[in-house]
């Protein structure tokens, strides 16, 4: 299975080309946020270096979140276009699980964090067993300090990673004795991990659908949070949706997905 993987969930923009036996090529850049400019040129380069034709791709794996909203959409939009045009399946790989794949060590936990702004993090807890990443705690949004002190209560060593450690505010939080921060080469996500997890998911039949796939945001937009706070009575009601119109015939609601 030849697969192209994309991870643009953080300040890192990473592309990998992999087949069943190995990571053939990876381009990982962490140098200013220019994902929107460079992602497709990097994909082109990675395919060229791999000496593989894009028509030979059996799948597209994309880091699906949580992470930077805009970064996730750049990655997913690009992945959707590729999947649709090359007629190959797409799969969304949970970003923090892919990050935890840096640490395939039995008997320890991996705490994966993604910056959720204002001192908060998306926090997922993982362990490794018999070649698999196990989700110990589903991803949630917490103040970083709270997530760290929770890790201090765990009964095993905890390896911590994620872009939150790039923030000045994170340096003020001291780590409990059983916790350690990953070195810089393993601190942020890389597409090689997304490729391996994506390949496994695809072989398990876990395909996404380009027609309705969304990033995993976890959080609502700021405007919706404010609205729900001010209008608790309508918060639970179903949301209005977009209307598709054929502008030539004037027909409305032309497609129901």
């Amino acid at each position: 299975m030849l697969i192209l993987a994309i991870d643009t969930a953080t300040s890192v923009s990473s592309i990998a080309v992999a087949d069943d036996s190995k990571i053939i090529a990876e381009i990982t850049v962490d140098n200013r946020l220019t994902h929107s400019e460079t992602l497709v040129p990097h994909i082109e380069a990675a395919m060229k270096i791999s000496e593989k034709s894009k028509d030979a791709l059996d799948g597209i794996a994309v880091s699906i979140g949580p992470g930077s909203f805009t970064g996730l959409r750049i990655g997913l939009g690009t992945a959707k276009g590729l999947s649709y045009a090359l007629k190959c399946p797409i799969v969304g790989v949970p970003t923090l699980e892919a990050l935890a794949y840096h640490f395939p060590v039995p008997g320890v936990y991996t705490a994966a964090f993604a910056d959720a702004q204002k001192g908060n993090v998306y926090f997922g807890l993982y362990s490794f067993k018999e070649g698999n990443i196990i989700e110990v705690k589903p991803v949630q949004v917490l103040p970083f300090a709270e997530a760290v002190s929770y890790c201090g209560t765990l009964d095993a060593p905890v390896m911590m990673a994620g872009d939150i450690f790039r923030k000045k505010s994170a340096k003020k939080v001291s780590l409990p004795e059983n916790c350690d921060k990953a070195p810089s080469n393993l601190l942020l996500p890389r597409a090689a991990n997304v490729a391996l997890l994506g390949m496994r998911m695809l072989s398990e039949g876990k395909k996404g659908n380009v027609m309705d796939m969304e990033p995993i945001y976890i959080r609502k937009s700021e405007a919706e949070v404010l609205w729900d706070r001010r209008h608790p009575e309508t918060a639970a009601k179903s949301e209005p949706s977009s209307i598709m119109i054929d502008a030539i015939s004037g027909e409305r609601g032309v497609r129901n997905d």
Binding site: G77, Y84, D212, E222, A223, S242
Partner: peptide
Amino acid sequence: FGGVVPEIASRKHIVNVMPVIDE
């Protein structure tokens, strides 16, 4: 919301873009 909320707009675009192209 009384106007376009940019984050919500982006969220709708990423869902709608392929069905619109396909159609």
